[in-house]
Amino acid sequence: MRTTGIQELLKSRSLLFCDGAWGTIFQSAGLKPGESSELWNRDKRKKVLEVAQSYVDLGVDMIETNSFGGNRITLAGSGLENDAAELNRIAAEISREAAGDKCLVLGSVGPTGKILMMGDVSENEMYDAFAEQVHALKQGGADAICIETMTALDEAELAVKAAVENTDLEIVCTFTFAKTVGGDYKTVMGVTPAQMAEKMLSAGASIIGTNCGNGIEAMIPVVKAFRSFNEDVPLLVQANAGVPKIENGKTVFPETPDEMVSHVPDLIDAGVSIIGGCCGTTPAHIIAIMINNGIIPAL
């Protein structure tokens, strides 16, 4: 299994499963707003391993790593820029330890939070930050790189390039889209699924898709938009458990596992290849989807 990549797995199975959220689970476990969850890789390794294990135990095909905000530009906000390589390497080691040979490890790479066109950071600095991160993720044992929650073409392209040029891993790239007033889907930077697909595939991503956003139902039209642009490329969808609300001072994600499950058939019809979850999803959401698709028997 270990030697098999995502595309290889998709040759024998048309639908694969991936993990759900980590960050929102850490928040419930006491991660403070603004605190770097990547620091937990070093300081609370057991807690991170527990989350990784909880997903591996479901029997998913792949899990991610706790390294979403692990590029040195983002880490600089917590004074951790010089720990970037170490924190990413440990992130991958933790997921590898949980996954063993049972499932693939996708090294998570999120956006830097800087906007290139504003000149807050140069292209070189951004590229170097991504290169350092993907290199460390590979060192720690990642099987693939998952560049996610992107909204800007230029930044995502640099991340994909950094992964192509500094690792030999499969590259997944997902963007976050929202419905516009006109009814079609774009990122906050104004990028359409077709524009994203074209740029990321030519930069070297082999699997594309969409994550985060406004709940699973809104992912269906995005998948359709991808499919009308490209019929064959593997598509990954990791939806939030709905749009978070605040109730009695606490963040609540409204979609229950059953609600998510109810939209999965349409998502499959639209042409999704890999289903996982983003903010607010838990092992309960992922297992419900897997049971519903006959991957594992109902309890």
Binding site: I115, M117, M118, T180, V181, G182, K186, V188, M189, G190
Partner: peptide
């Protein structure tokens, strides 16, 4: 911006 005729980049350029 509110009508989604332009997005964050255009908004930031104008603000600049």
């Amino acid at each position: 911006f509110e009508r989604n005729e332009v997005f964050v980049p255009e908004l930031l350029m104008a603000a600049r």
